[in-house]
């Protein structure tokens, strides 16, 4: 009898649990579904608020306007280049920095570590950084996009922790006896053993590069070098209504609708690659955060 009561209350609890989590799920998912559906609807449906869940009066007007822009593919290409090049540099820098900091016998490790950790509390400040990049002659080159942020301290700490916990000292000692030098040790032992964490960090860095737009906004002047995010922003600005232009109400309304529709489509276009890859790589993201927060 008693057991049955417990079982029943248990069931009720589990039910409540699923209901609660499903509500949270809706709060997270609904805005995203709404955005995607709106982007595939017609302007009039968007402006008059007819879209609830699925696209209303399906149309590709927003996307047409975006892909008509001559630089959109250049933007995609540039973003891809910045992402691949940037992430490669990131990973090399991160491993090179994290490895010495993970070695127990490395004297001065703690001082350097403190130097690293302290930077997490500030960023250099916009103006001095801007002037520095400018003086180094990096402005308006691809390097402005990948050098100033060639390494994130937080990820160095994650990598260091991973090395410390997964690569036993005995392995290093054995390697030294075999006459294996540090570089060789990194390439032939550390890197293969750290494949999971390298995957995680690559993903974090790559998403960061893909989403970044501020660096391009202040450093890149030439249209040929614009990443996707800037091109999208420009498309948005081009479609702003000029208040000085006298137009009739209907044109105004249509433009207003187009502007809103464009915004929905832009959000989708900008996030598309991440949207597609996310389900496949999310378990690595989760793992990365776990290593960083719990062990670091």
């Amino acid at each position: 009898m008693d057991k049955k009561v417990i079982a029943n209350s248990d069931k009720a609890f589990v039910m409540c649990n699923y209901i609660f989590l499903s509500i949270v799920l809706m709060v997270v998912l609904y805005p995203l579904i709404y955005i995607v559906s709106s982007s595939f609807s017609s302007t009039s449906a968007v402006v008059s608020g007819k879209v609830w869940f699925l696209p209303v009066e399906p149309s590709l007007m927003g996307y047409n306007a975006i892909f008509k822009h001559p630089h959109i593919w250049i933007g995609y290409k540039n973003s891809l280049i910045y992402m691949v090049l940037g992430t490669s540099i990131n990973i090399i820098m991160t491993i090179l920095a994290a490895y010495p900091l993970s070695r127990k016998e490395f004297v001065g490790k703690n001082a350097i570590m403190a130097l690293f950790v302290f930077t997490m509390l500030f960023n250099g400040g916009l103006i001095p950084t801007y002037l520095l990049v400018n003086n180094l002659g990096l402005t308006n080159t691809i390097w402005a996009m990948v050098i100033p942020n060639a390494m994130a301290v937080w990820y160095v700490i994650i990598a260091r922790t991973y090395f410390q916990t997964t690569i036993p000292d005995e392995l290093y000692e054995a390697a030294v006896i075999d006459g294996c030098r540090d570089i060789k040790f990194i390439v032939s032992i550390v890197v293969p053993l750290s494949a999971p964490i390298i995957a995680v960090l690559s993903l974090f860095y790559a998403v960061g590069h893909w989403n970044s737009y501020f660096a391009a906004l202040i450093y890149i002047k030439s249209e040929k070098l614009y990443p996707l995010q800037i091109i999208l922003r420009n498309i948005l600005i081009q479609n702003e209504i000029d208040p000085n232009m006298l137009v009739d109400v209907r044109t105004l309304l249509r433009q207003q609708g187009m502007k809103d529709l464009l915004k929905y489509s832009l959000i989708v276009v900008a996030s598309l690659p991440v949207l597609i890859i996310y389900p496949f790589v999310q378990k690595y993201f989760v793992k990365g955060i776990m290593v960083g927060a719990l062990k670091g």
Partner: peptide, 26 residues
């Protein structure tokens, strides 16, 4: 120790140049 310090050089250069230097300039 020398080799290992060399590994750290690029990272140190980077944070000194792009984080500490601008910070002190600020």
């Amino acid at each position: 120790w020398l080799v290992i310090s060399l590994f750290l050089c690029p990272a140190l250069l980077l944070i000194v140049l792009f984080l500490y230097y601008p910070f002190f300039m600020s």
